[in-house]
């Protein structure tokens, strides 16, 4: 518990650093939001007026302190473009990203881990070479390319835009933006299946990279463990293959796998720009990239801060998972 509090506390300086960095970075991108609003027909006064209205004419330290002051009250400010509260916009979009990212990670785990295990059990076999070649392909093929292939291949049978059919959505009338979770909790089968069917293709496309990485890590980690003496002992005492692999080997091979899964989850929660674009998925990636194009400073700042926080928290979670997986790992104890 003390360890946890310490870790949580140590996140603060990291986030403070990130906030300063992103604050300065967005202002270092060439171009300015006022000009983006006014477009081809900007007059000098108009640009000045917009800059003044949003406080961009004030000294940077003042702007930063204002931003941090608001932030400490949980206020991310308002979008320069849409004039909507950034917190509200994020509350609608982040759940979409979470559902997509977690589904992709789930697919990657469900397919990648068994694939890696199978490959490790028969190293250099046809199965091994085949699955590792597929994994290499998964890492290398750009997601938008895979996205199109999926759309062209099965797009006639599966939805590939948005999160739910409009008719189903109306009937369902969700109160949160977690469509899948809410549909499951409300035991609304029609909404759940509709939401899941919309999730499938984008999640599949998005899972290609983590799936490949997980499969490769599982294979190498398992190969290492399977060569250990205690595995030979386990085999020698007559345990079934299943027990040896799943109980003795896999559990010990899990730490690198969990590490990789954690990192991948962190990445994906940062919004999958290309996947969200190809599949019109209304999540954070699409939102923040659009904001970068429009130099919508408050949105970019809030988005990046959110990504950083998520990343740090996921990592913390992974560290906590280590001690559960391997009792020898004692958190907070320095030897």
């Amino acid at each position: 518990m003390r360890y946890l509090l310490g870790r949580l506390f140590s996140i603060l300086p990291v986030l403070l650093g990130v906030s300063l960095l992103v604050f300065l970075l967005v202002r270092a991108i060439p171009g300015d939001p006022a000009r983006n609003i006014a477009g081809e027909r900007a007059s000098a006064e108009l640009i000045e007026q917009i800059r003044a209205e949003h406080g961009f004419d004030r000294p940077l330290p003042v702007q930063y302190l204002t931003f941090m002051g608001r932030l400490s009250r949980g206020d991310f400010g308002t979008s320069i473009q849409s004039r909507q509260s950034v917190s509200g916009e994020i509350a609608r979009r982040f759940p979409a990203t979470i559902e997509l990212a977690l589904s992709a990670i789930l697919l990657a785990t469900l397919i990648g881990v068994p694939l890696g295990i199978a490959a490790s059990l028969r190293p250099n076999s046809f199965l091994d070479a085949g699955s590792m070649a597929a994994a290499l392909l998964g890492v290398s093929v750009p997601v938008f390319c895979l996205g199109y292939v999926l759309i062209l291949a099965v797009g006639d049978y599966l939805p590939y835009a948005g999160r739910m059919d409009e008719a189903v959505l109306r009937e369902f009338a969700p109160r949160t933006s977690f469509y899948v979770l809410e549909a499951a909790l409300r035991l609304n089968g029609r909404a759940l299946f509709n939401a899941l069917s919309h999730l499938l293709l984008p999640a599949l496309a998005l899972s290609s990279v983590p799936l490949a990485v997980v499969a490769r890590i599982t294979r190498s980690s398992m190969l290492e463990v399977l060569g250990q003496d205690y595995v030979r002992t386990a085999k020698a005492k007559g345990l079934s293959q299943r027990a040896v692999v799943l109980k003795h080997a896999l559990r010990n091979a899990l730490i690198p796998i969990v590490t990789v899964l954690g990192i991948q989850t962190g990445y994906l929660l940062g919004g999958a720009v290309l996947t969200e674009t190809v599949f019109s998925w209304p999540g954070m990636g699409w939102f923040v990239v659009q904001a970068i194009g429009e130099r919508d400073y408050p949105v970019i700042q809030a988005g990046v801060l959110l990504f950083a926080t998520t990343f740090v928290l996921v990592n913390l979670f992974v560290d906590l998972a280590y001690s559960k997986l391997d009792p020898r790992v004692q958190l907070g104890v320095t030897k």
Partner: peptide, 30 residues
Amino acid sequence: IRTLAAVVAVALLAGCPGPDSQGGGTVGTT
């Protein structure tokens, strides 16, 4: 894992629109 696989499979089937919902662009409408 088996339950999840089943859910995914069912979702896949449920996502396949029947022939009537395909034609004329009626998807997503009341």
